[in-house]
């Protein structure tokens, strides 16, 4: 049973920002938030339903970036022609999130804000060097904030700065994640995950960099996606990387096992990437 709560249904970002505080939280698909509320982990006074804000579901190319509105569902991202053209790796990973209902209901922005440590999306977006854009009503000056339009302030964070821990991000209670920005062009990449239950045990994203290098991100296995950059794929020591990680033991694996399969999937991902890069 859900606890009782009030509901605001703003029609614009600025109207939404006026509603946000510690106890009045952004709400879209509810795939994570409603579960947390049902379990008694969160008891907000009010949900701020963002689904009436059209600009949060736009996909566009802007200043050399692929811009994805935070309210796009996983399924919408997976099937969007611009995403397919410019960031096929993200489209691929989004098509594997959860199940078909979660993909239809859950959003890319909600997924990131909830910071579920086993998120496929965060791992892939880290590998793509994506950033999130956060805006807040311009009441106070954020230390590293830049001025946004219309009496708002905004800041951009990459995944490492945004994701602080399991279920913990740098989003402040008055801030709204409005979009995700992926720098273009996106080079060849792969995403491989090892999943035996509802969520992945480990997810490995690898994106080609330069002539022989890659950016490797290992997600799901620890508290946060871990990124590594290599000049030469051939020099990657999968065991050494896995050994650096701190896996979270759970019913899908002990620390020992998770380290082991992490190494296995790093090797498999890099082999697949090499194949992709060398393919004509």
């Amino acid at each position: 049973m859900l606890p009782p709560f009030g509901l605001a249904r703003p029609r614009s970002v600025s109207a939404a920002l006026a509603e946000l505080d510690e106890d009045s939280v952004p709400y879209w698909g509810g795939t994570e938030l409603l579960l947390a509320m049902r379990m008694g982990l969160i008891r907000p006074r009010q949900l701020v339903d963002l689904k009436g804000i059209a600009e949060l579901t736009e996909v566009r190319i802007e200043d050399g970036e692929l811009v994805l509105g935070a309210g796009l569902s996983h399924d919408e991202v997976a099937r969007d022609p611009l995403v397919a053209e410019h960031a096929p790796l993200l489209a691929y990973a989004e098509a594997l999130v959860g199940n078909a209902r979660v993909r239809a209901q859950g959003t890319i922005g909600g997924n990131l804000c909830f910071a579920e440590p086993r998120s496929d999306v965060a791992t892939v977006l880290s590998a793509l060097s994506a950033e999130v854009r956060l805006v807040a009503a311009d009441g106070t000056d954020g230390a590293d904030g830049t001025d946004g339009a219309d009496g708002t302030r905004e800041r951009r964070l990459d995944m490492a700065a945004f994701l602080l821990g399991p279920y913990w991000t740098d989003r402040q209670p008055d801030e709204l994640l409005v979009d995700v920005r992926i720098p273009l062009p996106v080079t060849a990449g792969v995403y491989l995950k090892y999943q035996t239950v509802e969520r992945p045990t480990v997810g490995v994203a690898a994106v080609a960099r330069g002539a022989a290098g890659c950016r490797l991100v290992v997600g799901a296995v620890g508290e946060l996606p871990a990124g590594f950059d290599f000049e030469d794929v051939a020099s990657v020591d999968a065991e050494a990387i896995a050994g650096e990680l701190e896996p979270t033991p759970d019913l899908t694996g002990s620390i020992l096992y998770k380290r082991h399969v992490t190494a296995v999937f790093i090797r498999r991902a890099l082999a697949e990437l090499a194949e992709k890069v060398s393919a004509p």
Partner: peptide
């Protein structure tokens, strides 16, 4: 769109 009615608000 398919949704899970258990975790979808009536509103």
């Amino acid at each position: 769109r398919p949704v899970s009615a258990c975790t979808y608000l009536a509103v």
